[in-house]
């Protein structure tokens, strides 16, 4: 058994969420720069260069890169041999989000109810995905999920005959429909599972896989030319 401090979870979530909004991931920056060279359209190249400059400016001025500082998506990979020194793991995650929101001047983007609305005021609750795994470690991944991207999400129940080709076709259709509505370039995360609910909450989420690396069980060749935040 290993004991982890609940308060350390709060601090870690806070620091990661602030970082996700302000500091560009180096792999992502490299992907931007590469795309800025390979993109055939001059206007596309110009815009990609502007996005690189924007990320540099954001870091220099300690400003979020984007006004949509997202919904805090927190993946917890929790070893079965871990216990916490204090109760309240989920509250620690939410407190971390709350503190990041205040200290980094992030946007309050969540409403209490999709129909009745009413902003929660501090960007909580976080969307927490918990996976129990063997071991005595806790891995925390925090993503700032922009709602412009979330709006373009699609779920499809496919018949077995659709196969890999059907999945590819669905992916291309989804990208085309999203077009310029979400901010380019985009990270495409595709999850598949037995139930629709499970497909969207698979371990750590496909969008958290580092650039240029494959998920554990890739069935499709992955060609990542472009990418942005999950």
């Amino acid at each position: 058994m290993r004991t982890i401090s609940t308060d350390q979870v709060r601090q870690t979530v806070r620091d990661l969420y602030k970082q996700a909004c302000v500091v560009i991931n180096p792999e992502l920056k490299a992907a931007f720069a590469k795309a800025a060279q390979e993109e055939p359209s001059p206007q596309g190249r110009e815009i990609l260069s502007m996005l690189v400059a924007n990320s540099e400016l954001a870091q220099r001025e300690n400003l979020p890169m984007c006004q949509d500082t997202g919904i805090a998506v927190v993946f917890l990979e929790l070893g079965e041999d871990v216990r916490f020194d204090q109760p309240g793991l989920l509250e620690a995650v939410n407190q971390g989000v709350r503190e990041a929101h205040k200290e980094q001047y992030l946007r309050a983007s969540l409403v209490k109810d999709p129909l009745r609305r009413g902003n929660t005021g501090d960007n909580t609750p976080a969307m927490v995905h918990l996976d129990l795994v063997p071991g005595d470690h806790l891995k925390i991944v925090v993503g700032a999920k922009g709602t412009g991207a979330e709006n373009m999400s699609k779920t499809k129940i496919m018949s077995p005959s659709a196969g890999v080709e059907g999945a590819k076709q669905f992916l291309l259709e989804t990208v085309k429909a999203a077009g310029p509505n979400a901010c380019p370039p985009l990270v495409l995360g595709m999850g598949s599972a037995v139930t629709s609910r499970r497909s969207r909450s698979s371990r750590s989420g496909p969008c958290t896989v580092p650039w240029g690396r494959r998920t554990r069980t890739p069935t499709m060749p992955i060609s990542r030319r472009n990418g942005s935040r999950p």
Binding site: M65, Y105, C183
Partner: peptide, 15 residues
């Protein structure tokens, strides 16, 4: 929908 203005700025991020 901008982010709040940090001290010394007119506004936060505003795309």
């Amino acid at each position: 929908g901008p982010t709040p203005a940090p001290p010394g700025r007119a506004i936060g991020a505003a795309g």
